[in-house]
Simulated scan of single mutants.
Amino acid sequence: MNQKQSRKGKSEKTKERRAALKAERAKLAAGRFLVKQANSIPDPLEKFPTFQKYERNGLSCTLSCKKVKDLAPETLEWAIELCSTNMKAMYEKSSGGWRAWEKREEMSEDAAWYLIAYDTNSQKPIAFSHFRFDMDFGDEVLYCYELQLEKEYQKKGLGKFMMQVLELMAFSNQMLKVVLTVFKHNPDAMTFYEKCKYEVDETSPEDNFDETFDYSILSKLNKMKPTQKTSL
């Protein structure tokens, strides 16, 4: 190969890298726009009236979706306390431990959304999901931070229904996937999400000789949306 051909080859590779970088930036910009658009909707559940009720297995519930700033203070306190009741022991078994102040801060951040189920008869909250529309490793996602149910309302199909509602809101707003984190030492949760057709996400850390991880990242892809990965 002569010098001229060598320069031409390098020039072509430079053009390819620039084109790839331009495509990645365009994808990120498009994803951020979709996230911003989803977060600007007052109520992402409003256009799905049939998913605002759950009446099965002896339960009668209504569901609502609000930003954290629109939640009644007592409802947020209930959610934080339920999370502690259900998850404190699991966190204490993890490498990170349980930090009540950190969890409260996370659940109170402006970016937080809440999907809440209320008992139709008592009007009391009985289950919630804390989620966010966000960018995750360059992808536009709905990230499910928490799905917690009062003990007496568990194993009646409500949790699965609420995950379906999250997926509906995610995919109708063109998110690429729904993502969540689950402790490996929480077999009931792992089994539940597997039954909901969630799989280990490509961003989930893998154990190696230097480090082991006590959690997995799971996800479900929006099958109506083509996947375009970014290296950023």
Score class of each variant (00 low, 15 high):
D119G: 04
G96C: 14
K220A: 02
S11T: 08
D214F: 08
W78V: 07
E109T: 06
R32S: 12
E24Y: 11
Q154A: 08
D201C: 14
C65F: 03
C196V: 05
K22C: 13
E46N: 13
Q174N: 10
P205Y: 02
F133K: 01
D214G: 04
K156A: 08
G159L: 06
Y114C: 04
Q174T: 06
R32H: 11
M163G: 02
E199N: 04
N208E: 11
F183A: 04
V178E: 05
G138C: 05
Y91S: 06
E105H: 10
N186P: 02
K225H: 13
E152C: 11
S108V: 05
Q154V: 06
D210I: 11
K22G: 11
A20C: 05
K160H: 12
L34I: 12
T203G: 01
A170P: 02
Y193W: 01
Q5N: 11
T85Q: 11
E150D: 12
E105M: 09
V178D: 01
K13N: 09
F213H: 12
G58E: 02
M190C: 10
L180G: 02
K36Q: 15
N222P: 05
D210R: 10
Q52C: 07
F137L: 09
M190G: 00
E81V: 12
K27W: 09
L232G: 00
R25H: 12
I126F: 04
E102S: 12
E199C: 03
K223L: 09
R104I: 11
D214L: 03
M175Y: 01
G97E: 11
L147D: 00
Y118D: 04
M162A: 08
Q174S: 12
I80G: 05
F48G: 01
K184L: 10
F213A: 10
M169Y: 03
F161Y: 12
F209K: 15
H130I: 06
T230V: 13
L76Q: 09
A89M: 09
L166N: 03
Y198H: 09
L34V: 12
A72S: 11
Y145N: 10
T191H: 14
M162D: 06
K47S: 13
Q123F: 00
E105Q: 07
W78E: 01
V182R: 02
V178K: 01
